[in-house]
Design a binder for these strands. Structure first.
Length: 557
RNA sequence: CGGGACGUGGCGCAGCCUGGUUAGCGCGCUUGGCUGGGGGCCAAGAGGUCGCGAGUUCGAAUCUCGCCGUCCCGACCA
């Protein structure tokens, strides 16, 4: 296949958009791959769509390889489906009405639609099933950013598995995990499979594929020794040990006038902030719960939501006073009738805590002896924590979530009455998993990982073309001959036959980032050779037109 | 949703504070010429309801109010 740049809509730009931050945003716009239509709304131009479709095809092949069946659901769905699942309450859901007032939802994923169809699965003999589609998703993102990294509309490959039980789900889940690993591998994308926090929806297990990048929405926590990876929201870092003062046989009140913050408290008492505790009263449902973390830690809202399997809000000043008898800066877990969830870091040792008396604290407070908490990991991990696997140091870096897979269990099938009959004629709920991957985001992540100062360096599997032929003026016939030779060797060829200067063409070729460049110039007319160069290398290799096809194929590997 | 900024030919910007002829500049584009292996040069052109709507004024890109849009920080995030 040969495509001529003179006839292509390929608007390259010399300068990146002023507001672009991320490398992928700048380069994809400059290279003429994508253009913005509105906030978080993008058009894929011809080159960008080619790349997108290559990623799509890789995904399709790997889905096929695990026996998943491709289909296609609608982008307009009745609001009733979303009322059944309850997800209509999610703020990001896009809602609209038709001319006669019927209410619809533009799906952010298709669990409802697919579960709706799963009601036609009636017997254990029909299970397991795995269905998938590529379809447009809409999300009312409060703040799109970073080009394709975070958008309001995008194409997602989402698949759904339907099994008779948890054991079957485990198998489907593992198949998808492996398929995803192969997909990213084929795309040349480095990813880590990490635990993610499932949050409000209370899925049993939720895992993400994070691609480490220069900029991204997520934070990847990893051990310097390379044996632990996690999304920071779910990371189980071990905090450093505090320097405790001498232990006390019972808590002792100490007057702390005007001390409202942990730093002020630690300084006033002359102790390590890590030897204090921080009390955060929250309300979930109709319960008031005291969440307790170490003074130098931050509460992880996601982890706490997972503990509650529900969202929560901070308690109001009135609720605090009613329960604790003192203001927000002086409350603690001792001698008060309240449910306490304490972070694991508070299990051992004695800490300073609020005395539930304005202007006073308690020192020597010990969990188990002075109050009876439920322990849970509810602290936000931070860089410098100790690796839970090997004891090494944990570091944090930006990452893009390119895939997310869930064990949903019967969350949706219960609500939709999607049941089947087992061998004994008993009705059971279908057990479900869902698996999402964003080709556009994957494409952006590839650019984040594969570029230099000049432009993109596409891995061959996703490159818009295999070879970029730079045709210099006056040698049109030679350029055509070279392009034909490459085409006949089965390669995809982009010929820059525009009437531009050499420098401009080279700069565009570097920017666009095809893996091979063939320069056809004066030498072609003189001795019949073309200069081949890999995008990753700075050297030309003179090749005769006769050997062009085979040499190019070799260099592409 | 809270805070901040911006909106002027296709792109990037100046002009606005201190209202006043035909609203400028760079890139790109068109035509002609010189060039021709890393964004070259000369000349002549085309292209703008100054985001939208009200208002103030003899007069508004410029001042006031409202709306819309976009971006940044935060909150949020199946």
């Amino acid at each position: 296949m040969i495509v001529r740049a003179s006839q292509l809509f390929l608007p390259t730009l010399r300068a990146a958009p002023a507001d672009a931050e991320a490398a992928s945003h700048k380069l994809l716009v400059r290279g003429g791959f994508i253009r913005q239509v509105g906030a978080g709304l993008w058009t894929y131009l011809p080159l960008g769509w080619r790349v997108h479709q290559k990623v799509v095809q890789i995904i399709r092949e790997e889905m096929h390889a695990i026996g998943a069946q491709e289909m296609l659901g609608p982008v307009l769905t009745p609001a009733e489906l979303w009322e059944t699942s309850g997800r209509i309450e999610i703020p990001q859901v896009m809602k609209l009405q038709d001319g006669s007032g019927r209410r619809f939802v533009l799906p952010l994923s298709h669990e409802e639609t697919m579960t709706f169809h799963a009601r036609e699965l009636q017997s254990y003999k029909q299970l397991p099933q795995a269905w998938y589609h590529f379809s447009t998703k809409e999300r009312d993102e409060p703040r799109p950013r970073g080009g394709l990294l975070r958008v309001r509309e995008f194409i997602m490959k989402d698949s759904y598995s339907f099994d008779r039980d948890e054991a079957g789900l485990d198998v489907s889940f593992e198949r998808h995990r492996q398929a995803y690993e192969r997909i990213f591998e084929r795309c040349g994308l480095q990813v880590y499979f990490v635990e993610a926090e499932s949050g409000i929806m209370g899925g049993k297990e939720s895992s993400g594929f994070l691609a480490p990048t220069g900029s991204g929405e997520n934070e990847l926590m990893r051990c310097e020794n390379g044996d632990y990876f996690a999304d920071i929201e779910a990371a189980r870092g071990v905090p450093r040990a505090p320097e405790f003062p001498d232990a006390l046989s019972a808590p002792e009140e100490v007057e702390t006038p005007g001390v409202a913050t942990i730093d002020a408290l630690a300084e006033f008492l002359g102790i390590d902030p890590a030897a204090t505790s921080k009390a955060m009263p929250v309300v979930t449902g109709d319960r008031l719960v005291l969440a307790l973390v170490r003074g130098d830690d931050r509460l992880s809202e996601e982890k706490l939501m997972t503990v509650f399997e529900a969202s929560f809000r901070p308690a109001t000043e009135d609720e605090i006073r009613e329960t604790f008898g003192s203001g927000g800066g002086s409350i603690g877990p001792v001698a008060v009738d309240v449910e306490v969830i304490a972070d694991e870091a508070l299990r051992e040792g004695q800490f300073v805590a609020g005395a539930n008396r304005d202007g006073w604290h308690l020192r020597g407070v010990e969990a188990g002896r002075d109050y009876r908490p439920t322990f849970a990991d509810i602290r936000q991990a931070v860089e410098g924590d100790v690796c839970p696997v090997c004891g090494g140091r944990l570091v944090v870096g930006a990452a893009v979530e390119v895939g997310h897979i869930f064990k949903l269990g019967t969350f949706f099938t219960d609500r939709f009455d999607a049941n089947y009959l087992d061998e004994d004629g008993r009705e059971r709920p279908i057990v479900m998993g869902s698996y999402g991957i964003g080709p556009g985001r994957t494409m952006a992540a590839i650019v984040e990982q594969h570029h230099d100062e000049q432009g993109i360096i596409w891995p061959r599997a996703v490159a818009p073309y295999d070879v970029h032929v730079v045709a210099l003026p006056g040698v049109e016939e030679h350029a055509n001959a070279a392009a034909s030779a490459l085409d006949e060797a089965g390669l995809e060829v982009l010929v820059d036959d525009r009437d531009s200067r050499a420098g401009e063409k080279f700069a565009d070729a570097d920017l666009i980032g095809c893996p091979l460049r063939a320069t056809v110039g004066r030498k072609a007319a003189e001795d019949g050779t073309v200069d081949l160069r890999e995008r990753t290398k700075g050297e030309d290799k003179a090749v005769s037109v006769g050997e062009l096809g085979s040499t190019a194929r070799e260099m592409l590997g």
